[in-house]
Amino acid sequence: MIKVRIPTPLRPMTGGKSEVEIAGNTVSEIIDNLGSAHPGIKERVYDEKGEVRRFINIYVNEEDIRFLTGKDTPLKDGDEVSIIPAIAGGS
């Protein structure tokens, strides 16, 4: 199982949990399975074309998947996936 960190804005879909355990061998499988377990979440991570939304970074451990092999990045037991929205703010 892979530990997946859920950002604050998506926690309503995980019943308030900040971490969930999901099975999967790649990042893509994790997001699919996360979407099955917690409906609505996959649509918030991917855009209409199935790409990671422009304000979201996905990390495997401490590395952004853009610098690994993207959604195909392989995972092994003990890896941690973090879904993290880039910094925002306002006035």
């Binding site: 422009r54 970074n57 853009r66 925002a88 306002g90």
Partner: peptide, 15 residues
């Protein structure tokens, strides 16, 4: 009244 950073650019800068 607000900003959202581009996640890819932010990751590139961090790298």
């Amino acid at each position: 009244i607000a900003f959202q950073m581009d996640a890819r650019e932010m990751a590139m800068a961090q790298r």
